[in-house]
């Protein structure tokens, strides 16, 4: 009897151990392919380009990379055109993310209460963000066309040519890009706000109504704080994307007129893949962009954690 009761646990333990072992093998089998290709295609290139950023090198020159220390970084940081492209990216990010936040949140407030067909309407508004930015940019060129585009026609139906040619001067070209980006991505902010709004428990509003709180007070003290974390996630995602912005400008303006819509990504592309093919400097610029994105994400994530902690 005692032998039996002792045998059973050891057997079970053994079996468990055997299963545990095979679990370990299974985990390795399941995870390693992913990790290996991520390392090959992401980690290796990152280190490689870090190395290149300290060298003088061009992909078209038949010469080995030559170590020059921080020269690439100082060269970039001392060149006004790069500061200009950073400024352009900043203005673009600020304008488009700002507008998207305000519009997206307002739209979410409109669509908050379900009505007949509201689900269908919500889905329809989501179509723009699933489209390819470069194709969208290309097509908006036709919409902005000063003589036969519908944008100017809708602005001034009697004589569309009197309205400004959106893509011809620096300020309006930036505005044109921002409009397209806002058109594409406001639905994204709206979607997140909507899910935040739907998650607010009704009893908060009921309690506020019983306390006879004003609508404004309810909005300030219930709606806004409850939606804030999700709104912040939306803003974080959009800011990162805006800093990465490339496709849309390439389709719509190609960075022009002049350099007025040349974001960092486009400057980087030009530096790396046209003219001099200055691979070393382009790598340095790429690293600067990378560090900026990491810093911004960290600030947001800190703030988000603080919001959630409260």
């Amino acid at each position: 009897m005692t032998a039996l009761t002792q045998a059973a646990p050891t057997q079970a333990k053994q079996r468990a151990q055997r299963r545990h072992m095979s679990d370990g093998a299974l985990v390795r089998l399941f995870i390693f392919p992913t990790l290996i290709i991520l390392i090959l295609w992401n980690v290796f290139p990152l280190f490689y380009s870090l190395y290149l950023s300290f060298t003088r090198y061009s992909v078209i020159a038949n010469r080995a990379p030559e170590w020059i220390g921080f020269s690439n970084y100082t060269a970039i940081l001392s060149r006004p055109t790069f500061w200009q492209s950073f400024a352009t990216t900043g203005v673009y990010a600020l304008l488009s993310v700002g507008l998207q936040t305000v519009l997206g949140f307002s739209l979410a407030m409109l669509l908050r209460q379900k009505f007949k067909g509201s689900g269908f309407i919500t889905t329809l508004t989501l179509i723009p963000m699933m489209l390819s930015p470069v194709v969208v940019g290309m097509f908006w060129k036709l919409i902005y066309n000063p003589s036969y585009g519908i944008f100017n026609f809708l602005l001034n139906p009697t004589n569309p040519r009197l309205a400004t040619d959106m893509l011809a001067n620096p300020v309006s070209a930036m505005l044109a890009v921002v409009i397209v980006d806002v058109w594409m991505w406001t639905p994204f902010v709206m979607l997140l706000c909507l899910s935040g709004l739907n998650a607010i428990p009704d009893y908060l509003y009921e309690a506020a109504a019983i306390d006879r709180a004003s609508a404004w007070f309810q909005f300030r003290r219930i709606t806004l704080p409850q939606v804030a974390p999700l709104l912040l996630i939306a803003v974080l995602f959009r800011t990162i994307e805006a800093i990465k912005a490339f496709d849309l400008m390439m389709g719509l303006t190609g960075g022009g007129p002049g350099k007025s819509t040349e974001t960092v990504s486009i400057a980087l592309y030009r530096l790396a893949f046209s003219g001099q093919f200055n691979t070393g400097q382009a790598s340095a610029l790429a690293y600067i962009v990378l560090i900026i994105i990491i810093c911004i994400s960290n600030v947001y994530i800190r703030y988000l954690n603080k919001l959630r902690g409260e």
Partner: peptide, 9 residues
Amino acid sequence: LPPVVVTIP
């Protein structure tokens, strides 16, 4: 990572 950053290497 922005695609343009990864593309060079």
